[in-house]
């Protein structure tokens, strides 16, 4: 039985193999950067009763209060993320969704007719359509 030394394994690699390996690693890094960071959202769109109620940048913290048929929905924005902080709806689905941080992510408070969605960047999915 041969001893499996690292040296023996490395001897199997020819110069082009290192190039192919570098190329493969580059594909990993580039695809991760392109697909996982390019989709960073840069703005928040708040709709009430089907109309755009407010649009705000995602760079600074602020709170938006949206009136609806049931009462006021409070939307909280922090750098890079946003959430529905409180809502008068009975089931609180949009509040429980927590912080949204990906482009295309949407929280809908249907009873109060308010929705919060993140836009900008290369939005890679659309939770409303699919």
């Amino acid at each position: 039985m041969n001893r499996l030394a690292v040296r023996d394994w490395l001897a199997l690699l020819r110069p082009g193999d290192y190039m192919a390996l570098l190329l493969a690693a580059a594909v990993c890094v580039v695809s991760a950067l392109a697909l996982w960071q390019g989709g960073a959202p840069d703005k928040v769109v708040v709709r009430a009763g089907g109309q755009v109620f407010a649009e705000a940048g995602l760079s600074s913290a602020r709170v938006i209060e949206v009136p609806g048929p049931l009462g006021v929905t409070r939307i909280e924005i922090e750098p890079g993320r946003a959430r529905v902080a409180s809502d008068p709806g009975p089931r609180q689905y949009c509040v429980r969704q927590g912080w949204l941080s990906r482009s295309g992510a949407t929280a809908i408070c249907a009873p109060n007719q308010v929705s919060l969605s993140l836009a900008g960047g290369a939005s890679d999915y659309d939770s409303l359509n699919y």
Partner: peptide, 24 residues
């Protein structure tokens, strides 16, 4: 849906590692 491409980096990493090992 284009959502599948979100996993490309994971698959690419797996292909690199297993490609190297299998080739050796």
């Amino acid at each position: 849906h284009d959502g599948v491409f979100y996993l490309v980096p994971v698959f690419a990493l797996a292909a690199t590692v297993f490609g190297l090992v299998n080739g050796l």
